[in-house]
Every structure is written in structure tokens, then in C-alpha cells.
Amino acid sequence: MHARFVRGAVRSAAVAAAVTGTLTWAPTANAQPSEPTPSASVTAADTPAPDAGSVEITTRDTAGDVLPDAAFLLLDSAGQEAGRGTTDARGKLTFPDLAPGVYRLKETASGSPLHEVVADQDVIITPGATTRLTIIDPFKAAKVLLQAKDDKTGKLLPGATVNIGTGTSTLLTLTTGAKGTASGELPVSSRKTEFWVKQVKAPAGYDLYKPSKTFTAGPGSPVTVTVTNTKTATSPKPDPSDKPTPKPSGTPSTPADKPGSDTRGTKPSAPGTGTSDVDSSSTAAAPDSDATPTTPAGSLAHTGTDGTPWIAAGAGLFVVVGAVTLVAVRRRRAAESEPDENSETH
């Protein structure tokens, strides 16, 4: 019986030893897990994916100068932020380790008070490549105030139109309103840009300002441009007192101004050959008719100064006619007295 007890004890010990050995081996057999530990997963995430890309940005202005401190925001296709940053002293900024796809790039600040930001744009990231972009920030526009003035009084004039440009290009056209002013924004391409201004339409009642003026404007700076106009010269109104002297009528009131037409060519009888039946009234009209020539058709009417010599000639003829008449009267009396003398003789 004792021997049977010993054999049972030995068998129990062997079973216990077998069980203990199994428990001890099990952990050893499972020492290498089939899944990575958490620390191994974090290490794998820090390693860039072999198909990642990047974008490199360079900012400049229209004059070619680099712009530091320009701020950008990068959004992925879902609108989530994929990166943000500002350009360095060389005007550069890089967004690395980007999954391939389409991104949205936003400039939030130009970093300069003289420059504007550009519009948003899409950026395509390709696997294993760097996309390089050059961003050109424009200068802020100059603020232009146009004035049109009377060159004598300084009064502001509406309705003046001018063109403003640089080189051979017209950049802005302004027309003054009811207050005689107009304003607009003039694009500039450098920190100091020279422009010309030329008036193409004058205000009502004024002459066109023909010279071309020049001025200088800077980004975001206000500038005033003034053109002056001279009033259009007008002809003076005629003075009523300066009316021309009316022309003389075609029918003169004196015999000297109007030649006779009925006795043209009639001459008085010479002394000693006249007859007693000479009519002094008809004879007196004849000298006027012969002395004054007929006015040709289409000629101008004679004025009073032309009749003076004719009046003097007419007076002389009247004297001659009177002398002839006197001689005729004396001869008649002599003829009448001859019979009386003859009768007394007989």
C-alpha cells in the first residue's frame, strides 16, 4: 500500500511538472506579437510617404523686387487647413509633405503697405515632385482727383473730359461733374510713375486746353490734377449809333442833281443872231440839260459834293441867257423906232 502511495505521488508530481512547464513556455512562444506596438506605429507615421509632394512659393512685386512677410494659407480639397506661413527675407515659403491632389492657396497679407494681395488660386500637387509658384503682388492704385477751372476766376467747371495714361497707353478717362471735379483710381507699376493728362473735351463756352501736362504718382498716394480753360471769345454786338448813312434816293431834289432829258443838245443862240421870240424859261432849262451827263445804268448815285461844279456852271449859263435876252429886247425896240424916224423925214 505504501508503494502504491509513492507511485501516485510520483505520478502527481510529473503531472504538476508538465503543467508548470507548459505555462512557462507559453509566454516565451508568444514573445513576438503579430501586430506592431503603439510606439512602432508612431515611428511609421513620422516617415514621409514615398508619393508625397510639396509646393514652393516666391513672392515679388511688378517691379521685380522680392516681398518678405507675405502670409499664405493652404487648404486641401475638403477645405481643411493643410498649412500656413509667411515668406522669408528672400520672399520664399515652402509647404512640404503634401499628399497628391488639388489644393487652394490664399494670400492673406502682402506684408507691405504699398501692395495688394492676389486672388485665390488652385495648386496641383504631384507625387514626389515640388510645385513652384511665383506670386506677383500688384502695387496699390493711386487716388486721382481731377479739377477743371476757369483760368481767370478759378471757378470749377463741369463737363471737362480728360484722358490719363503713360507712354502710348490711356489708362483712365475722367469727366468733371456738376461740382467741377472727378475722381478715380490710377494703376501704377512702380513706386514713382510718371503720367500724362490731355483734355479731349472742353466745358461749354470754353476753349479746349491743348497742352499735355505730366505728373508723378505713387502706390496708394492721393494726387490732384488741375486743367484750366479760357472762355471762348465772342464778337461784340453792333452799336445802334454806328448804323451806316442811308444812301441818297435816286431822284435829286435840285435841277443840278438831275439832268434834263427833253432839251438835250440844245444850245443858246449866239449874241446878234437871236430872235425876239426866245422864251427865257425854256432857255434857262437847256444849260442844265447839256451840262449834266446822264447817269449810266448800274452806277452809284451822286452825292451832294458832285453837284457843286454843276451848280456853278448853271449859274454862268443863266448870266449868258440874261445877256442874250437883253440884246434881243434892245434890237426889238430899235426896230420899232425906225419907222417913226422915217415918217418924220417924209
Rank of each mutant, 00 (worst) to 15 (best):
T216N: 00
T230Q: 05
T224K: 10
T232N: 03
D239N: 10
P219L: 11
V225A: 15
P236A: 05
G218M: 11
K210W: 11
S212L: 05
L208D: 02
S212K: 14
A217G: 03
T234I: 02
G220M: 10
T230G: 12
A217N: 10
S212V: 15
T230I: 07
V223M: 00
L208T: 02
K210A: 15
P211G: 12
S241N: 07
K210G: 10
K213H: 10
P236R: 01
T224R: 13
V225S: 10
T216D: 12
K231C: 11
S221V: 04
P222N: 10
K237D: 14
T232D: 01
Y209S: 15
P219Q: 07
K231V: 06
V225Y: 11
V225N: 08
P240C: 10
T226W: 09
D207I: 12
A217F: 07
K237M: 10
T226A: 08
T226G: 05
V223T: 01
G218T: 12
T232W: 09
P211T: 02
T226V: 12
K210P: 07
A233I: 05
K213A: 15
A217D: 04
S235G: 06
S221H: 01
K210L: 10
G220V: 04
S235R: 11
V223A: 00
L208H: 04
L208K: 05
D239S: 04
D207Q: 15
T234Y: 00
G218W: 04
G218L: 06
P240K: 03
D239G: 02
T230H: 11
T232V: 10
P222L: 06
T216W: 13
L208A: 09
A217Y: 08
P240I: 09
T216S: 15
L208V: 01
F215K: 02
S241E: 12
N229K: 05
F215Y: 15
P238M: 09
S212H: 09
